[in-house]
C-alpha cells in the first residue's frame, strides 16, 4: 500500500469523531428539543400540529438552531469511508467517488427538513393549515427521499465483497457488507410513506421510520467501529 495513506490516519480519526460528536448533538436537538421522537402521527389534525410548534415554541426553535449546526454530521464520515474505499479500489476509485457525492447530496435531506420545521415554528400566528403544510413538507422531505442513499450503500457492499484485504482489520468486513445490504433493501420503505397516513406504512410507522431508524443507528455504530479499528491497524502497521 502506498505510504501517502498513512499520513492522514490522524485526520481521518478526527473526522470519524467529528461525526460522532455532531451526531450526538443532532440527536439531542431532534429528540430532546424538537421532540420529534417518536414522530407525530401522519394523520394528526392541523390544530394539534400547530400546538406542537406553539407550545414550547422557543425550545423548538433552539432545537432547530442546533439541528442546523449539527445537520451535516454525515459528511465527515462520508469522506473517511471514501478514502478507505479508494485504498481498496484499483485505478480510478469510482465507488469511492459516487459514495462521496451521494453522501454530500444526501446530507441535504437531514438539515433541510430541520429548516422547513423551523419555518413552521417561526410564525405560529398563521392559519393552522399553513403550519400543517410546512410540517408535512418537512416530514416527507425527511423520510421519503431515497434517491441518493442506495448509491452510497451499493459501493460499500461492492467493496466489502470484492476486496482482497483480510476481514479482521478491514473497514469493510464481509459481515458489514451484509448489514449494509439489509439496510439497502429496507431503505425502500421510505418512499412508501407518501401513500399512507395511518398504520405501519405511514411516516411514523414501522416501515418508513422505525426500521430505517433502527438499522441506520446500528449501521452507524458498526461502521464507526470498523473504521476506527481499520485506522488503528493502519497506524500500527505504518509505524
Amino acid at each position: 500500500m502506498e505510504k501517502g495513506f498513512y499520513a492522514s490516519v490522524t485526520s481521518q480519526r478526527v473526522l470519524v469523531w467529528m461525526t460522532i460528536a455532531l451526531g450526538v448533538l443532532f440527536a439531542i436537538s431532534y429528540m430532546g428539543l424538537m421532540r420529534f421522537f417518536p414522530p407525530p402521527p401522519a394523520d394528526l389534525p392541523a390544530d394539534e400540529v400547530l400546538a406542537h410548534y406553539s407550545t414550547n415554541n422557543i425550545r423548538f426553535r433552539v432545537g432547530v438552531i442546533f439541528g442546523l449546526i449539527s445537520g451535516g454530521f454525515l459528511l465527515p464520515i462520508t469522506v473517511v469511508i471514501s478514502v478507505q474505499m479508494a485504498r481498496l479500489e484499483k485505478g480510478v476509485p469510482v465507488w469511492a467517488i459516487i459514495q462521496a457525492l451521494a453522501g454530500a447530496v444526501g446530507t441535504i435531506f437531514i438539515w433541510f427538513p430541520i429548516l422547513i420545521w423551523g419555518v413552521a415554528a417561526f410564525t405560529v400566528e398563521r392559519a393552522a393549515e399553513l403550519t400543517l403544510l410546512m410540517h408535512e413538507f418537512g416530514w416527507l422531505l425527511f423520510i421519503a427521499p431515497l434517491s441518493m442513499f442506495p448509491m452510497q450503500l451499493i459501493g460499500i457492499i461492492f467493496i466489502a465483497f470484492t476486496k482482497e484485504e483480510s476481514d479482521a482489520h478491514s473497514a469493510f468486513p464481509r459481515w458489514l457488507g451484509y448489514l449494509t445490504a439489509w439496510q439497502l433493501v429496507q431503505s425502500f420503505g421510505g418512499p412508501i410513506a407518501v401513500l399512507f397516513k395511518t398504520g405501519i406504512f405511514s411516516w411514523n410507522g414501522l416501515l418508513p421510520f422505525w426500521l430505517p431508524f433502527g438499522l441506520f443507528s446500528a449501521w452507524m455504530v458498526a461502521i464507526c467501529y470498523t473504521l476506527l479499528r481499520a485506522l488503528r491497524h493502519q497506524r500500527a502497521s505504518s509505524a
Partner: peptide, 9 residues
C-alpha cells in the same frame, strides 16, 4: 454473514 441479512429480513 449472509444470515444477518436473511434473518433480519
Amino acid at each position: 454473514g449472509l444470515w444477518i441479512l436473511l434473518f433480519g429480513e
